[in-house]
Simulated assay, not measured.
Amino acid sequence: MLSEREKQFMQYWEANRDRENRWQQQLLAGIPMGLLFSLPVLAIIFTGKLWYQRADMAMNAMASPYVLIVAVFVITVFVSIFYKRHQWDMKEQQYRQLKAREELEAKEGDA
């Protein structure tokens, strides 16, 4: 027998699974997690001036700030979409397991 919470999840997921599978929705919803991964890169680079001046000189000689901005943007987008895609897969797996359990219980109830 499915619990009330499981039934509520199944109703929610049936109504929203297609909306949450779009990459635009995944990007917008996952941006906080993407920033959580990419902003420490900036923090390390900008505080590197304080604790290791030689590495800072080497970084300034090799990389432009535009490359750094693009890299942080790419990291943010990748992590945000990947994170939400993984969450979607986990919810879809849970939904399918509950659906299979519901169908099995219906068959056992008929027999």
Rank of each mutant, 00 (worst) to 15 (best):
R5P: 00
L98S: 05
K49M: 10
M33A: 12
E4G: 04
Q94P: 01
F9K: 03
F78S: 09
N21G: 10
T76R: 03
I45H: 03
L36F: 14
Q93F: 13
E14T: 10
I75R: 00
R96F: 08
V41A: 04
A71Q: 00
K84Q: 15
S38Y: 02
S80T: 08
N16M: 11
A29T: 14
G30H: 06
G30A: 09
G30W: 01
L39Y: 02
Q26S: 04
P65T: 13
Q87I: 12
K91M: 14
I81G: 05
A58F: 09
Q53N: 07
A15T: 14
S38E: 01
K84M: 15
R5Q: 13
I45G: 04
S80H: 05
Q11D: 15
E108K: 14
L36M: 13
Y95L: 03
D18Y: 10
Y83E: 01
A111D: 08
Q25R: 13
I75L: 13
T76N: 05
N16Y: 12
D56M: 09
R54A: 15
M59G: 07
F82Q: 06
M59F: 15
L27H: 03
V70Y: 04
L104P: 00
S38H: 04
D89M: 11
V77K: 03
G30P: 02
Y12C: 05
L104H: 05
A29H: 09
R54V: 13
L98I: 06
A106W: 05
Q25I: 14
K99W: 07
D18H: 11
Q25Y: 15
I31T: 09
I31C: 03
Q8A: 14
G34W: 04
R17F: 07
A71Y: 07
M57Y: 12
L35F: 11
D56A: 10
S3L: 09
V74N: 01
V41W: 01
N21H: 11
S64A: 11
I45C: 00
S80V: 07
F78C: 09
L36H: 03
K107I: 10
Q97F: 11
D89I: 08
P32G: 02
F82K: 07
A58R: 06
R54G: 04
R96N: 10
A63S: 08
V70M: 08
R85P: 00
I44R: 05
V70L: 15
K99Q: 14
A61M: 06
L35T: 04
I81L: 12
M59D: 05
D110L: 13
T47K: 02
P65S: 07
K107G: 02
R96K: 11
V70D: 02
K84I: 11
A106I: 06
K107T: 07
K107V: 08
R54Y: 06
Q97I: 13
E4K: 10
S80F: 06
